Amino acid sequence: IGRDTAKALHASGARVVAVSRTSDDLVSLSQECPGVEPVCVDLGNWEATEQALSSVGPVDLLVNNAGVALLQPFLEVTKEACDTSFDVNLRAVIQVSQIMARGLIARGVPGAIVNVSSQASQRAVTNHSVYCSTKGALDMLTKVMALELGPHKIRVNAVNPTVVMTPMGQANWSDPHKAKTMLDRIPLGRFAEVENVVDAILFLLSDRSSMTTGSTVPVDGGFLAT
């Protein structure tokens, strides 16, 4: 999702800074989209992130897309899974958004932030207790950010996809029986493609959504309506 969002923004003429902990992904993206500025850092590391992003910018638009899904039955959830999941899925959003928002406020310009959440923020999914918890927290963080940053003309929204056919989505939902239990609850009868999520992100970043903030936008084929 992050890669395709970066490519779509680059194609639209935006100056893109791409952040990933995987150097090879950044190298191939830079080759595919000349002019994209790569930043290689593990967003789960607060100090390294602060250092890596301190000289980036100015930034007007931010997509918080980094995420991990460590699936464990509730009774087997480990401290490591909790720490890693909340560090990346929630704490990194706070930190990166703080850095960007402070820059916007200092410059006195409006901006937009989109957090990539999940339908799992609002529905329980077996073996997803930590993941669901991080995304539920992210939805509420989105609303509080919108409340506090709104006076500075900074909009904050979330997109909440169903299962998306990324490599992570394919790995976690490759079992046909497991997939059927989810697909049977989606009125449109399919999982999301990456472009479905990218389109929603681009809308929320654009002035076409200038009156929308604090929202959690489902990209779920109707799952949350059932």
Rank of each mutant, 00 (worst) to 15 (best):
Q31V: 00
V63H: 02
M145W: 13
D207S: 15
L62M: 05
W46H: 14
E47H: 10
A69G: 07
V144Y: 10
D25Q: 14
T216Q: 08
G150A: 15
A158P: 06
I201F: 03
S54F: 04
G35V: 00
T84D: 12
A14H: 15
Q72F: 03
V197W: 09
V63K: 00
L62N: 06
L205G: 10
G44E: 07
P187Q: 07
S174M: 08
G57S: 13
T134W: 07
Q119W: 11
V93W: 08
I99F: 08
P167Y: 12
M100Y: 02
G13A: 07
V109H: 05
E148T: 12
S20R: 02
L90P: 10
P218A: 07
T126G: 03
A101L: 02
S129L: 13
Q31L: 13
W46R: 15
D199V: 00
V77K: 06
H128S: 06
I201Y: 01
G67I: 03
L183Y: 09
G67V: 02
D83T: 15
K178Q: 14
T5Y: 05
L62E: 03
Q170H: 01
D220W: 07
D175K: 09
P218M: 01
Q72E: 13
A6F: 01
I105S: 11
S97R: 07
K7V: 03
A6Y: 01
E195L: 02
P161F: 00
L75V: 14
C33L: 01
S54K: 15
I186W: 10
N65P: 00
I99S: 11
E37C: 00
N160H: 06
